[in-house]
């Protein structure tokens, strides 16, 4: 092959590459709109065990953080102009020693009781490129409605151990996604890969007896039938601590808990 022919072959190869790329430009089926179908069908739940509302008890309390609170990690949202807001991570949120975002639930003591799955949905909102709330409780089979209030596309990607994994994107102004989780799972991480600081934790439980501590570290679990229970306090970074409590009819018991910094 002489020099001229070689360069002609070179030119035609580049033209072939360009042609392939152009062909690839054709629009494929649009999957941008995430489906809003329920991702997992709930197994037909057995009839709920009745609870006498006249005897129910309440457990409440405050969760504290012992020692100096670690400085919140800074978030840099500059990679997306649509993201604004407080630029601090919510891994450990402590205010005056009160610890927020602790998931508190009845881990043991309910025996074989079953509960109706609530008809109302719990809402997970994405706004300011953060999840609201950062820690969420939901019953197995209950609908989680996921909204995007940002002017940017998010992808919602739960990484469960015991539930089905999924990953869907949600453009601005898209209809909310409606999902549910079939199996109990505590501190199920959810993240957005477009905005890697966006992380939250879903807690899927079998009973309605759960709460998440607020900014003042407070929680309240109402409507408990009298009995002996194990209450679990779970934090995404600080781990789990359990306490036993006995509640009589109409009791209100205070169960406080404190966490130390990991490694202390």
């Amino acid at each position: 092959m002489n020099k001229k022919t070689s360069w002609m072959v070179a030119a035609s190869m580049l033209a072939l590459c360009a042609l392939l790329l152009t062909m690839a430009c054709n629009k494929q089926s649009n999957t941008e709109q995430s489906s809003n179908n329920m991702s997992q069908t709930t197994a037909t739940a057995p009839v709920a065990t009745p609870i006498d509302p006249a005897t129910v008890a309440t457990v409440n309390g405050t969760v504290k953080f012992d020692g100096a609170a670690p400085k919140a990690a800074k978030i840099d949202m500059s990679q997306d102009p649509a993201c604004k807001g407080m630029n601090e991570a919510e891994a450990i949120v402590v205010d005056n020693g009160d610890l927020a975002n602790v998931f508190v639930y009845v881990k043991d003591g309910l025996g074989s009781r079953t509960f109706d799955v609530p008809k109302n949905e719990v809402v997970l909102d994405q706004s300011g490129c953060k999840y609201h709330p950062h820690v969420l409780g939901v019953m197995a089979g209950q609908t989680v409605q996921i909204k995007n209030d940002d002017q940017t596309t998010h992808n919602i990607h739960p990484t469960p151990k015991d539930n089905r994994e999924w990953n869907e994107s949600q453009p601005p102004a898209a209809a909310p996604l409606e999902k549910n989780f079939a199996r109990e799972e505590i501190m199920l991480p959810v993240k957005c890969n477009q905005h890697p600081w966006m992380k939250m934790y879903m807690n899927v439980v079998k009973s309605p007896f759960y709460a998440v501590t607020d900014k003042s570290g407070k929680y309240e679990i109402k409507g408990l039938p009298p009995g002996d229970y194990t209450i679990a306090f779970v934090h995404e970074k600080l781990g789990e601590q359990d306490q036993k409590v006995t509640v009589g009819p109409k009791d209100t018991k205070t169960v406080d808990q404190s966490f130390k910094a990991a490694g202390e």
């Binding site: 629009k27 494929q28 990679q79 997306d80 102009p81 940017t152 905005h195 890697p196």
Partner: peptide, 10 residues
């Protein structure tokens, strides 16, 4: 296949 999306984040 080839349409530039909103070019932000990941």
């Amino acid at each position: 296949l080839v349409k530039v999306p909103q070019f932000v984040g990941g």
